[in-house]
Design a protein around this nucleic acid. Structure first.
Ligand SMILES: [Zn+2]
Ligand SMILES: [Zn+2]
Ligand SMILES: [Zn+2]
Ligand SMILES: [Zn+2]
Lengths: 146, 146
DNA sequence: TTATAAATGAGACTGAGTCTCAATATCATA
DNA sequence: TATGATATTGAGACTCAGTCTCATTTATAA
């Protein structure tokens, strides 16, 4: 199996190695597919895209591989209120939060240092881990306001 | 059907009336059960509690009645990251947000005017409705930090 | 009382995600 | 390269929250 030369590839291979796991055909397919696209993505779309390209990988394997990619912090799983998980890349991307429209599902990313500072304070006051958080704001977007 | 004299009762009856709906035995059972308890609650627990008290109401009716109670803003539905909905009373309770532990599910309520102010600003900047939002912060609580 | 419309409950259904387990692939070592 | 121990996979069964359907029951108002 040819090694992947990207930083992401090195990290993934390292995780697999550390755990005594192998870089299988399926893991390579899923990894390479995910690395290409830097948007928020969902499992269903990955499965459909791979099927279209005749790359057969089972649903179970997709879920299992995503969990590994999460473990090595290449991606993070998010709940944006759509009733299923979304994922996004972490490596090389700035920390940000999500604003989601409760009606149409629109997702807006934003980074706001004032908010982040206050969130850290709130986490601290409540004895939560300050450096590990995930904020989701639900609201109603302009289009959905009547 | 005897009328309920609480403020909540009046609001619920008014909503039903406005919609040409009736205050049935089942709606009364569910309403009275929910009004009693001011914590966060989930559908499963309501159904179990009613079963224990031999008050037979179907799952579908519980969901349908909760939707009505939501419509008249007596309760709100929330996603606290447990994989199913939680509800809480609104009427007579101050606006607050939720901090949830991603590992153990612990829920902490907090009100923070600095945060709220900034959230409003963010909603405004992104053309979202300022007065209608719902913030959830996921993190790791003290007990779950190793 | 009766007609009309609303409400209910049982259970089928959906969709995301997990689990099981027999068959297959990987890898270190001989 | 062959071997055996171990990890991996895929098919489909399963779970769980929530929704939907529809035949039957109940409420309401004339
Ligand atoms: Zn919208
Ligand atoms: Zn994002
Ligand atoms: Zn915890
Ligand atoms: Zn609350």
């Amino acid at each position: 199996m040819k090694k992947n030369k990207t930083k992401e590839g090195e990290i993934f291979l390292q995780l697999l190695k550390n755990r005594g796991l192998s870089f299988t055909r399926q893991r390579k397919i899923i990894f390479e597919h995910i690395i290409k696209n830097h948007d928020h993505f969902e499992v269903k779309h990955i499965i459909e895209a791979l099927q279209k390209r005749k790359l057969r990988v089972s649903r179970a394997t997709v879920y299992r591989t995503l969990a590994h990619l999460e473990d090595c912090r290449l991606i993070r799983k998010m709940d944006l209120g759509h009733g299923h998980s979304h994922f996004e890349h972490i490596l090389g991307y700035k920390h940000h939060e999500h604003l989601c429209c409760e009606k149409c599902g629109k997702i807006v990313e934003f980074g706001d240092s004032i908010l982040e500072k206050r969130i850290k304070k709130i986490l601290e006051l409540n004895l939560f881990n300050k450096t590990n958080h995930n904020v989701r704001i639900l609201g109603i977007c302009k289009n959905c306001q009547k």
